[in-house]
Computed example of a mutant assay.
Amino acid sequence: MLLEMLVPGNAEVKQRRVALRSDGNILTDNMSARVCFFILLTSGCLRVARSGEPGTIIPPCPTNLSGVPGVPTNVHLTSTNMDLVLRWDPPEGACSGLIYTTMLKSSVTAYTPSCVNVSAHQCDLTTSISIYGTYTGRVQALWGDTRSDWETSDSFVVDKQTLIGPPNVTLLSSGGKLEVVIRDPVFKRTTLKEVYHSVAYNITYWKDGQEDQAKSITQIQQNRLVLDELDPLSKYCVRVQIHTVRNPRPSQPSSIVCETTSSEEETLWLVAVVVFVVMATVVSLVVVLVLKWKSISQFLYPKDALMRHYPEALLEAPPSSGRVALRSMEPAEEISHRVTVEDRGLVEAAESS
Results as ranks from 00 to 15, higher is better:
I131W: 07
S51T: 13
V85E: 05
Q252R: 15
F37E: 01
Y236N: 05
W269G: 14
L289G: 12
V273A: 12
L314K: 12
P60V: 05
V240P: 06
R16S: 11
D231Y: 08
K235M: 04
V278F: 14
R17Q: 13
M1I: 12
L306P: 07
L326M: 09
R308G: 06
E330R: 09
T42Q: 10
N10T: 00
M307V: 01
L86M: 14
S114G: 00
T204Y: 01
V75C: 08
D29A: 13
W206Q: 01
S284D: 08
F37C: 02
Y132W: 15
W88G: 02
P248R: 15
L46I: 09
V282G: 08
M307Y: 07
S106M: 06
K188V: 06
K105T: 09
C36I: 04
G24F: 08
T56A: 14
V277D: 02
Y135P: 09
E259T: 04
G97V: 06
K207A: 08
V199F: 09
D184G: 07
K14Y: 04
L346N: 06
P8G: 02
H337I: 04
E4M: 04
H197C: 02
G70P: 08
D83P: 08
R34N: 08
V245S: 13
L2R: 11
V169T: 10
S114A: 13
V118T: 11
S216C: 01
V339I: 13
L233H: 13
S79W: 04
V71C: 12
R189W: 00
G44D: 01
V68K: 14
P232D: 12
V75M: 05
E151H: 02
L65P: 01
